[in-house]
Every structure is written in C-alpha cells, then in structure tokens.
C-alpha cells in the first residue's frame, strides 16, 4: 500500500504536556477490535477526551467532552502538529495508535524521544515523528503556551523544524525511512522489486547452513 507522502508541512501546534504517553492512552483497547485501518480519529485519546466510556461505533459528536483535555480547547481544534514529552508512544505495538493520530489530522509529532515500535509505525502512515532536544522541546512548550495560533514548519527534505520567529532546529531521520515517506512509496512493492533475488539467494544459502529452519513445518 502506498502512503501519503510527507514533504514540508506548516501547522498549528497542540501541546500534550505529559511524559510516557502510552499507546493504550492514544487508542484504548476496545477500539482495536476493528478490522479496518481508518475511522480511529474520533476515538483518539478517548479516555482523556470524553467524560463517558467510549465503545467502537459510537457517534462521538454528542458525547460529553472533558474540558480540561488539551485537544478539546478551541484554540487547538485545527492542530496538525502534536508537541509531546519523552517516551511518547510507549507500550503496545498497536499501529492503531498512529492510525488514530493521522485520522484525527496530525501530520507530525515533536518530542524529545519516542518508543521504538511506535516511531517505526509512524513512518508507515504518513506521520512524521521528530526528535528534538529536551531543552528545545521545553522552549517550544513555553512558546505554544505564550502565543495563540503557534505554528511550526517541518521540512523533511531539509530535516529542520522552523519556528514563527525563524529559529531552526535540525533533526535526524534515517535515509531509508526518509525516502519512503518523501515519495510515499509502497515499501512492500519496493522490497519485492529491488530485493526478491537477494531474498531467494539468502534462503538457498541459509537452507544449507541451517536446514532445520526450512523443514516441512
């Protein structure tokens, strides 16, 4: 499946000011029963966002919202960039977490660190996780709180985050993931087109070295 490419994005920033946000919080377990990739946005952060108990298939427009939850504040309603704290996306490997964030409308998440599996899952779904130094993230939180309509520009080709004042913070991303996301490539298609011969050759060699791995079962 090809993905939505990510090139350069400027968007309103919403601050989620807590560390170790886990994937159970991002999308609670009851929504994992879906067999689709879409439709998770209304249930993003369900237990923090609503005051009632959410179940799959619920119509969310009439549900009681938690006014204290940041995404329910009108000033962040159009946010497309999530500013977060350390170890964002820890816990379960559920890809439903990036599906929900993307479906809600986020294109990028900026944090001091991400959990490994979540980080990897984001790239498969047109969602760019950006790691910046803890001190820089602290500054950005302050800036978001101080200004209304605070926007960041995230430039993937140049690998830089730019503030409205022109401060620029470079970030790293490995070349393979960058290419996949920039071009919106179907990674399976790329592997099959470029690596099928190498995979077969590996299997032939490996079956000699470790035949028990290729026994009938």
């Amino acid at each position: 499946m090809s993905i939505e490419p990510f090139n350069r994005h400027t968007g309103l920033v919403a601050p989620l000011d807590r560390a170790n946000v886990d994937t159970d919080a991002i999308i609670p377990k009851q929504f994992l029963k879906s067999v689709q990739r879409t439709g998770f946005g209304p249930y993003l952060f369900d237990e923090w966002r609503y005051l009632d108990h959410g179940e799959p298939g619920m119509e969310c427009s009439q549900r009681p919202q938690n006014p204290d939850f940041v995404l329910n504040q009108p000033r962040y309603a159009a946010a497309t960039v999530l500013l977060a704290r350390a170890n964002f996306g820890c816990g379960s490997s559920r890809e439903h977490a990036p599906w929900a964030l993307r479906d809600y409308g986020f294109r990028a998440i900026v944090a001091p660190s991400f959990a490994d599996i979540f980080y990897s899952n984001c790239f498969k779904n047109g969602l760019l996780p950006v790691v910046l130094d803890e001190g820089v993230v602290d500054q950005l939180f302050q800036a978001v709180y101080d200004a209304s309509d605070y926007r960041l520009t995230i430039d993937l080709p140049e690998q830089v985050v730019t503030t409205p004042h022109g401060d620029a913070f470079p970030f790293t991303v490995d070349p393979f993931r960058k290419r996949m996301l920039l071009e919106g490539l179907d990674e399976i298609g790329v592997t099959l087109a470029e690596q099928a011969e190498a995979i077969r050759a590996y299997e032939q060699r490996r079956a000699q070295e470790a035949p028990w791995l290729f026994a009938a079962r």
Binding site: S93, R94, E95, N121, K124, F176, I188
Partner: peptide, 17 residues
C-alpha cells in the same frame, strides 16, 4: 514486536528493513 504494516511486509517478503 512490530506494527501491522510490518506484519504485512513479513507476510509478503519474509523480511523487514
């Protein structure tokens, strides 16, 4: 552990980057 896109990648190619 892997995400669902990687599950599909392994099903289709028996490999992962």
């Amino acid at each position: 552990g892997i995400g669902t896109s990687e599950v599909e990648h392994v099903l289709a190619t028996q490999t992962l980057v």
